[in-house]
Design a protein around this nucleic acid. Structure first.
Lengths: 275, 275
DNA sequence: ATGCTACTGTGGTCTGACCACAGCGCGGAA
DNA sequence: TTCCGCGCTGTGGTCAGACCACAGTAGCAT
């Protein structure tokens, strides 16, 4: 089960204690953890060890911390895996643990499956039709003629994420958010390799509509094929003809890659708001 | 002391600094990070903040720390995403951020795709046949008659992971390791709900061989169907008959469990690998 | 009743101090 | 000369204490 049974590390003990309380149902999303000082005393460790564990939980999307006082202060259990997945993928790509090619391959797998599932659940026999309004609103926004390429790409990413959210699979949604974050720098970098952005963006818009149309028509095969060709086509267009490894990658998007914490996953919020 | 006049979180500055050095190719796997004290001085933060960032990098699978002295001591850049994915999935499941049903649905997607890709790359025309020796060695080990159920499950997990590794997709491999870890507790719990373990394990062994046979025969459709039915079948068997999880997987797991044709589309282009 | 202030408790950070550990090098012994 | 051994040094791991900024709250003064 847990690969970590007993370590000389105090912060692991804190982590395991909190994980156990979560598994026991003792801690639920929305609950507040004891204060750092109290936790340290309870577990017989120093506060710094408690803080290291809490830091891990924070980047893992398990808790949200806030200073001050009142009911919103302290460490509160949340479950926002999107940011954690994004951070993990970004870092693994940066450390050459995840080749960009594998990220793209995984995107192809997941998005094809998502599109297929959405189309199947859109069949007339199916009781629940998928909610594509969010995705289509993004497509409408992408039709705006005065969009910068980077803005277009941001909407593009949001569209793909909206499809995943429509599938109702939170694991796939979070994973796709992470995959997209992992290759965000390369997507922006590849922008420079596109000759005619106007034509490319028009094609991308057309392909997006084609995917949604296939889903609405309950044509699962077409949905899978179109999303697959859409993704692989864009990466074929933007990838360096000879480049294979990410070793000597330029650091163009380094400035925006880490700081602003995109976190497009509104987990605790009432998601299906008809925005 | 330096320019940290604004970042509200010191540990984040450390994290971003290291991520930037990774992206710039300044840090490569195998390299050693500066000592915690030196890092603290360089970045103008306290050592505790450095340690919190290093702790995050450690659980993210980016570094490996060791005490003492010598070339193996200190924080060394590695890239082991498997443990990080496992921890993330386990914690998110514990915090009710990832429903178990979604984990299983994602497993079905990924493993079906992996089996299909392996079968396609095993085609006679293909130059590179997948290496299934590790997977088959695990199957041989599972034939041992005096295996405890938990040991069998551990080998089962290793087998599925070996298939992912054979596909050569490190992202899928790490993700599947994480998915498996996330539901490991449920898999062990479900063990108690199996009436005849002997018959079940025999069936699982048979299904495993069937998957490998389909891959070797380059029958992608059969490989996909068999791995899909294998996973969903076990999950259906170990789920509580009436309770929450069994009915919570309407789309894929339950609907296609008996159908031999869950994926009519042979996915025209499996993964042209755009790079 | 109202408005302001001091109090309290939270996370965030820094500092300094120990400990255990593992390599390195010097010095003494064979 | 060679070789063994022990202390030195630098590493991460941990703890304790201190301070700060912040936000809610209680109580005092008006």
């Amino acid at each position: 089960m847990t690969d970590d049974a007993e370590s000389p590390r105090a912060w692991r003990a804190v982590l395991e204690h909190i994980e156990r309380r979560l598994l026991d149902g003792d801690l639920l999303p929305g609950d507040r953890l004891p204060g750092e000082r109290a936790l340290a005393v309870d577990l017989g460790v120093g506060r710094s060890s408690v803080r290291e564990a809490l830091r891990v939980l924070e980047v893992m999307g398990l808790i949200r911390t806030a200073s001050g006082s009142g009911p919103t202060a302290g460490a509160i259990i949340v479950a926002t895996p999107g940011g954690a997945m994004s951070a993990l993928m970004r870092l693994q790509v940066a450390a050459h643990g995840f080749p960009v090619a594998d990220i793209v391959r995984t995107r192809l797998i997941l998005e094809s499956a998502v599109a297929g599932e959405l189309a199947e659940s859109a069949a007339p026999a199916s009781a629940t039709s998928p909610d594509l309004t969010a995705a289509e609103r993004l497509l409408d926004a992408m039709d705006s003629p005065d969009l910068a390429a980077a803005e277009f790409l941001a909407l593009d990413a949001a569209f793909h994420l909206a499809l995943a959210e429509a599938s109702g699979n939170q694991v796939v949604t979070a994973t796709m958010a992470g995959l997209r974050s992992g290759i965000e720098g390369y997507a922006l970098d590849g922008l420079a390799r596109i000759d005619d952005w106007h034509a490319t963006s028009a094609r991308l818009r057309r392909e997006h509509r084609g995917v949604v149309d296939a889903i609405r028509a309950a044509d699962a095969a077409a949905a899978r094929t179109r999303i697959h060709d859409h993704i692989s086509g864009y990466y074929a267009e933007t990838s360096e003809p000879d480049a294979r490894t990410a070793a000597a990658a330029p650091h163009v998007a380094a400035a925006d890659a880490t700081s602003p914490e995109p976190d497009p996953t509104p987990a605790p919020a009432p998601a299906p708001a008809p925005v």
